[in-house]
């Protein structure tokens, strides 16, 4: 049996074009940044030697490291808690299904975006400049930045609550807060907890680093030891940090598994 119709022309695939453009772009960037292939290779060799010096960690100051670690965790805890409180208060207004009017919705959304946009390290810098060294600027920086993320996650969860539930609450004469407590939060609690744990996990990681800008915790110590070329102490610090981060990571994954 012969084919009566000719096959339609095969559509042009744009993939090769995009790919070549991308490669060209990357090349241009590499040139612009004055990246030198040779320097990279030498650099890698240097790095190998450099990292070898971290081979023998010195745990002599362990007790003070552990204290700093506790402080780091405390920064993460309070940063996350404040972020949670702010997010809980702002999120309903940033959810288009619940927000009282278009203006509050836009304002709340923009506020959350603004809080998210600034990298928390930069915020920490700003807060340190304003408030001086110490853990407080770290807490505030984390709180502001992650409130933006958490608020957006919550608002998106709220928008996925079936609209019928809002109608039911309206029909019994429930107020705004009552609708939140009985229809909205029960529907999204699982997701909300998962998101909060994710943010806390991330904040532990960030709190460790915030010390680099003077915002307290173990990062500050690492900065000093590296500056002083104390590799043995640095590697001990890094190990302590890594173990803690991994531990919190596992813990929060476990909790999240138990919830689903």
């Amino acid at each position: 049996m012969s084919i009566d119709q000719a096959l339609p022309a095969k559509p042009r695939s744009w993939l090769p074009l995009w790919l070549s453009l991308l490669l060209a772009l990357l090349y241009v960037i590499a040139v612009d940044l004055e990246l030198d292939g040779e320097a990279l290779l030498y650099g890698l060799e240097d790095m190998a030697g450099y990292f070898a010096r971290f081979g023998s960690p010195d745990f002599s100051n362990l007790s003070s490291y552990l204290q700093l670690l506790a402080q780091t965790l405390a920064i993460a805890v309070w940063g996350s808690v404040l972020a949670l409180i702010a997010a809980v208060m702002i999120a309903p207004f940033a959810a288009i299904t619940i927000s009282p009017n278009a203006l509050t919705y836009r304002l709340a959304r923009e506020l959350l975006n603004f809080m998210r946009a600034m990298p928390d390290l930069l915020l920490a810098l700003l807060f340190v400049a304003a408030l001086g060294l110490g853990p407080m600027p770290g807490v505030l920086a984390l709180a502001v930045h992650t409130a933006g993320f958490l608020g957006k996650f919550f608002a998106e969860s709220m928008e996925r609550v079936p609209a019928g539930r809002y109608e039911a609450m309206a029909s019994v004469g429930a107020g705004f807060t009552q609708t939140l407590i009985f229809a909205v939060w029960p529907s999204m609690l699982r997701e909300a907890i998962g998101n909060t744990l994710y943010i806390f996990d991330r904040n532990v990681r960030m709190a460790a680093v915030l010390g680099l800008v003077g915002a307290g915790g173990i990062g500050l110590e690492l900065h000093d030891t590296l500056r002083l070329f104390r590799y043995d102490q640095s590697s001990a610090l890094i190990m302590v940090m890594l173990i803690t981060i991994i531990a919190i990571d596992q813990l929060s994954t476990w909790i999240r598994k138990k919830l689903t």
């Binding site: 109608e167 039911a168 029909s171 009552q178």
Partner: peptide, 27 residues
């Protein structure tokens, strides 16, 4: 003073029956 019943029931799935019924008193 006006109760409403919907086609898709509009209960809150995760809450127990009693809580759902109690929401009738929220006003």
């Amino acid at each position: 003073r006006i109760g409403m019943v919907f086609q898709h029931f509009n209960l809150v799935d995760r809450l127990n029956v009693m809580t759902n019924v109690l929401t009738g008193r929220l006003a």
